[in-house]
């Protein structure tokens, strides 16, 4: 009855594939629509925040920092409210991480300031004694890639219907609209306007000068992203 298995490689391969695929079909497909709805108050990322998110990914911050608060008292005490599925609705890719060599960053925007990040990213051990996090001095020089962030906005808005330039409901009943540029020049101007707000809170004169001259260093974009994590 099962004798054909070891003699017929084609049927064998089909059998293996069905066995292997079975679990995926049952466990992954059904929950797709359900878990991707945003909770009230979750907004898409602005151009600058998205550029900062790309800086975060480029430097694999997620190798050491999670963005997932589990529903335990110790975690909610330390990091804030536990994570809800809908809060991640605009996260492509997800950045939960798998290892906390450093603390969770899910809600870091609630308790760290622009100035704190600025000093900490330059030399972590100067702010947090004994910290084993490396410094990221080059982020103060490298220019953030706004164009790619804009391309990503266009893509997610076009393909997945992410609501840019549309009112998004907030928790207090009001609405908020996250703007996306019509053209790439438009997008650069939007990002620069946002970058100026961040740079105003920073101390580093080189960074301030760059932003004044219309250039956005990676650190400004990253801080805009970190401040948006709430």
């Amino acid at each position: 009855m099962f004798h054909w298995l070891e003699k017929n490689p084609f049927l064998f391969a089909v059998g293996v594939f069905l066995t292997v695929a079975f679990a995926g079909v049952v466990s992954i497909l059904p929950s797709f629509a359900q878990t991707s709805r945003p909770v009230i108050g979750t907004t898409p990322y602005s151009t600058l925040e998205l550029a900062g998110r790309q800086v975060y990914i480029k430097n694999s911050c997620n190798a050491c920092h999670s963005q997932l608060v589990r529903p335990f008292k110790a975690e909610t005490d330390r990091y804030g409210h536990y994570s809800l599925s809908g809060e991640y609705a605009y996260d492509r890719p997800f950045l939960w991480g798998s290892k906390r060599t450093g603390p969770d960053l899910m809600r870091v925007g609630n308790y760290r300031t622009t100035e704190w990040h600025e000093n900490h990213m330059m030399n972590p051990a100067a702010i947090v004694p004994n910290s084993i996090m490396p410094g990221y001095a080059w982020m103060f020089k490298n220019i953030a890639d706004i164009d790619t962030a804009y391309a990503e906005q266009l893509t997610v808005a076009g393909v997945f219907g992410v609501p840019y330039n549309k009112p998004v409901p907030m928790a207090d009943g009001s609405t908020k609209t996250i703007k996306m540029g019509k053209t790439v020049e438009d997008a650069r101007a939007l990002a620069l306007a946002e970058a100026k707000l961040v740079a105003a809170d920073m101390k580093n004169q080189d960074v301030k000068d760059m932003v004044k001259n219309g250039k956005i260093p990676e650190i400004v974009a990253l801080i805009a992203y970190l401040n948006s994590l709430k």
Partner: peptide, 14 residues
Amino acid sequence: HGDWFHSVSAYAGT
């Protein structure tokens, strides 16, 4: 627009 090497995941969040 932007970097041709960059891509975005087809799935979001959870």
